[in-house]
Simulated assay, not measured.
Amino acid sequence: MRLSLPAVLSAQMRNAPVISRYLGITLAVCLVDLATKWVAVRSLGEWGLYPLSDRFWFTLVWNTGAAGGVSNGPYTWLISVVVTVVALLLVLGVVRSIAAIDSRATTALGLVSGGACGNLLSIVAGPRGVADFIAIRLTEETTMVANGADLFLWGGALLLVPVGATLLRLARAERADRRAAVFTRDTTMA
């Protein structure tokens, strides 16, 4: 039996509303990100600078590196694409299981995946790189420039903190239950 990605996705969609919700959030976030990048590129141009406050402004910066502008030399593009695709497939494989434990996982993973998809499509489609346009001055010497995908990724990551805490708490409880079962078995055998 041969499996293809469309067949797997189709089967997942039929069997789980969690997957449908996750994919819907992912698609919506990706489309919002691509739309905001399109607007930023069209309205800011190469030298546009629109201050909102002394700490926030809009400006266009082309990020040709990986996340955070990190460069892996000539392999940056390939590594970014492969790592993102593998991560998206892994998330798709676990979202239903994690959502069964904590329903917040669906939204959180959808935000993260949508942001990743938006930046992935920007990497693949744009020879200039990923359009970053939201400038945030962190200190007098440090300014970070991000895009909608980055904000969605960070928001999703923050939402995953309580999900991770729930998973950790359950893992600890399960480990304690196993220890108690072993202790009970050992004391009854003695």
Rank of each mutant, 00 (worst) to 15 (best):
M1Y: 10
L3W: 07
L3R: 10
S4A: 13
A7P: 06
L9N: 12
M13K: 10
A16R: 03
Y22N: 00
Y22T: 05
G24Q: 07
L31P: 15
V32S: 02
A40V: 03
R42H: 13
L44K: 06
E46H: 15
E46A: 15
W47H: 14
G48M: 03
P51L: 04
L52V: 06
R55A: 12
F58D: 13
F58H: 06
F58W: 15
L60N: 02
N63Q: 09
A66I: 02
G68P: 05
G69A: 04
G69C: 05
S71E: 09
G73S: 05
Y75D: 07
T76E: 11
V82A: 15
V82Y: 11
V82L: 14
L90W: 04
V94T: 11
A99L: 01
R104Y: 06
A105W: 01
A108C: 13
L109A: 05
G114W: 02
A116V: 02
G118H: 06
N119H: 03
L121C: 00
A125M: 12
G129T: 00
V130I: 04
A131C: 13
F133Y: 10
F133K: 06
I134L: 11
A135R: 08
M144W: 15
M144H: 14
A146G: 09
D150A: 02
L151V: 05
W154V: 00
G155L: 09
L159E: 03
L159H: 03
V161F: 04
P162G: 10
A165T: 14
T166H: 02
L168M: 14
L168F: 14
L170W: 10
R172H: 03
R172Y: 02
E174P: 09
R175V: 05
D177E: 11
A180V: 03
A180E: 07
A181V: 01
A181T: 05
F183S: 13
T187D: 03
T188A: 10
M189L: 15
A190I: 05
